[in-house]
């Protein structure tokens, strides 16, 4: 028996070494999303949070580019976080929400309904950006299984090395410095866009043959609603303001979301018709001709939405909360500085 152990133990040690080496190599070659394509770093920023939040946003680029947690805190003392990512699909939003609700219980969860139009996995690149940021957990593996396109393999999510090994030849500085600790790329999930490229488009969306929202999307929306109900959290549905023929929000879709919200007693704000009231000027408040807002547009929208939230809920004013004041004020200062610099 002893002789056998003399061989078995070193072999097991070697296998463990191999496993760690593969994980480390994976961290070395996976894209870090620190300088370009920062959208890939949004999901992982959340793990740097130390305190809980009153409001949680989930959804795609129409949340992480159109709302700013710094403004909500500065003007209304409401603490919030945006767990958004590029083309975040409904089931990914659901699993991210499920992960966050394990560690904190906000008063309100805000979900942007644009992604309801995607009924099945869309694109490998967006999947990777959303899912690679998540910490390994059962929730992540279920999210991966729900999101994978045909060409993707589950193993390449467990070991990112299997997917990104060809980046070995093009490693950059940041790949080496940021193997373990990766700085945040956003302001509590808000990705600042300071460019200005306005333009009023009079074009309508391109007609479709079928306007019914996919069944799978509604199924996961229902799951999201039930999870919020279970945790005693209010789910608010919103449709961010956009003014672009490519991101057109068809009235038929709007009807279906309205019916769903009404039948389940949810609040649903469609901000598109409210643009004047919010004060959005499509010549200065967008950086890509109306598809997304820039920081000035986001500021206006957040102020308006903050007022709405205060009128309908009573949030404590966290600006007096000593435990988190310093952290949030630092965020507001950094946000103001970055915003101001561009003015």
């Amino acid at each position: 028996m002893k002789k056998r152990l003399k061989i078995l133990l070193p072999c097991i040690a070697i296998l463990l070494l191999l496993a760690t080496a593969l994980v480390l190599l994976g961290r070395l070659v996976e894209p870090k999303y620190l300088t370009e394509q920062k959208e890939g770093g949004l999901v992982r920023d959340y793990y740097k949070e130390t305190s809980s939040h009153d409001v949680l946003f989930v959804g795609d680029c129409e949340v992480y580019e159109n709302f700013t947690p710094a403004t909500l805190y500065r003007d209304y003392g409401i603490t919030s976080y945006i767990r958004g990512s590029a083309q975040q699909l409904v089931w990914q939003s659901y699993y991210l929400l499920e992960e966050m609700l394990k560690t904190e219980t906000p008063k309100v969860v805000v979900y942007n309904v644009l992604a309801l139009k995607y009924g099945e996995p869309q694109n490998e690149a967006y999947n990777r950006m959303t899912l690679d940021g998540m910490k390994n957990s059962l929730t992540k593996w279920r999210a991966v299984l729900a999101s994978m396109t045909d060409e993707e393999s589950f193993a390449s999510y467990v070991l990112p090395l299997l997917r990104f090994h060809d980046r070995f030849g093009q490693l950059k500085g940041e790949d080496l410095t940021a193997i373990f600790d990766r700085p945040t790329v956003s302001y509590k999930g808000y990705l600042m866009q300071t460019g200005v490229e306005g333009g009023v488009s009079d074009r309508e969306g391109i007609p479709l043959t079928d306007y019914t929202l996919p069944e799978r999307s509604m199924e996961y929306l229902e799951k999201m609603r039930l999870t919020c109900e279970e945790h005693g959290v209010e789910l608010i549905l919103i449709k961010s303001p956009t003014n672009h023929w490519k991101y057109y929000w068809y009235d038929e879709w709007d009807e279906q979301v309205k019916d769903y919200a009404a039948s389940h007693g949810l609040t649903y704000y469609n901000f598109i018709p409210l643009c004047e009231e919010i004060g959005i000027d499509w010549n200065t408040d967008t950086y890509d001709k109306g598809a997304h807002l820039n920081v000035y547009g986001a500021e206006k929208l957040t102020v308006y939405f903050g007022k709405l939230l205060q009128e309908t809920h009573n949030f404590d004013d966290r600006r007096e909360d000593e435990t988190i004041k310093t952290e949030w004020n630092a965020l507001v200062d950094a946000y103001q500085a970055a915003k101001g610099k561009e003015k």
């Binding site: 959208e39 680029c61 690149a125 967006y126 074009r203 890509d288 598809a291």
Partner: peptide, 15 residues
């Protein structure tokens, strides 16, 4: 031609 941006990538579609 009008541009159609996408979420994260710079390759813009056109109309």
């Amino acid at each position: 031609p009008e541009e159609a941006p996408n979420c994260a990538f710079d390759g813009k579609g056109k109309l």
